[in-house]
């Protein structure tokens, strides 16, 4: 009966095919050898089947990342579709790993696969979550840092979907600036 029901239901196609990547920090290997493609999906149903069977981000060990990118874009600055882009960065306090991290990451994923950025959804490349002892980070990567209108629209919608207060300010950094400066020193190009 369940099989028959599943066949009758049909699946809901997404606008894009998405790839989930996993990074585990092993210092004995090169950075790219630590980055693995987990799987790709292109329907709502397959997204949940995947999401339900992987570790929640809050249970990963420090140094690990999940990345969700459109099929054909690798989760690294060097990819041709990322190199002129940047990221909206959410920096979390340590205690937020247990209270908000998983919800923020799930809402980030839903924003991406649901194409919730209106006519600017094509600007989105993917999203990354970094699990780090000093504080976790979530970011949405977009393809063109100079597209102020698109970038700020994405930032405003993203902030609203995370349920962040108007008092909270989030910043956008161009990858070109992040790549040449260490961590927190990277220049903030836009804020919302």
């Amino acid at each position: 009966q369940e099989l028959l029901l599943a066949e009758c239901l049909g699946k809901h196609p997404l606008q894009n095919r998405w790839a989930l990547w996993f990074f585990k920090n092993d210092k004995s290997k090169m950075w790219q050898a630590n980055l693995r493609l987990v799987t790709k999906f292109s329907t709502v149903e397959d997204f949940w089947a995947l999401y339900s069977h992987i570790q929640p981000a809050s249970k990963l060990t420090s140094g690990c990342d999940y990345s969700l990118f459109k099929d054909g874009i690798e989760p690294m600055w060097e990819d041709s579709q990322n190199k002129c882009g940047g990221r909206w960065l959410i920096t979390l306090a340590k205690q937020q790993r247990h209270t908000e991290l998983d919800r923020f990451w799930l809402d980030t994923l839903l924003c991406l696969i649901g194409e919730m950025f209106d006519e600017h959804s094509d600007e989105v490349c993917g999203a990354v979550i970094n699990i780090r002892a000093k504080g976790d980070k979530i970011a949405i990567w977009t393809r063109e840092a100079e597209n102020q209108q698109g970038v700020t629209h994405i930032g405003r919608v993203y902030k609203e979907h995370l349920g962040l207060s108007q008092k909270v300010v989030i910043g956008y950094q161009a990858h070109a600036d992040t790549a040449t400066k260490s961590g927190s020193l990277a220049k903030t190009k836009f804020v919302v």
Binding site: L14, E45, W48, A49, D107, L110, I113, G114, S121
Partner: peptide, 20 residues
């Protein structure tokens, strides 16, 4: 036509597929 889904719609599928 673009395939767009809102949060509530997507969340509606969560527990159906978590239990399969």
């Amino acid at each position: 036509e673009k395939k767009r889904y809102d949060r509530e719609f997507l969340l509606g599928f969560q527990f159906i597929f978590a239990s399969m």
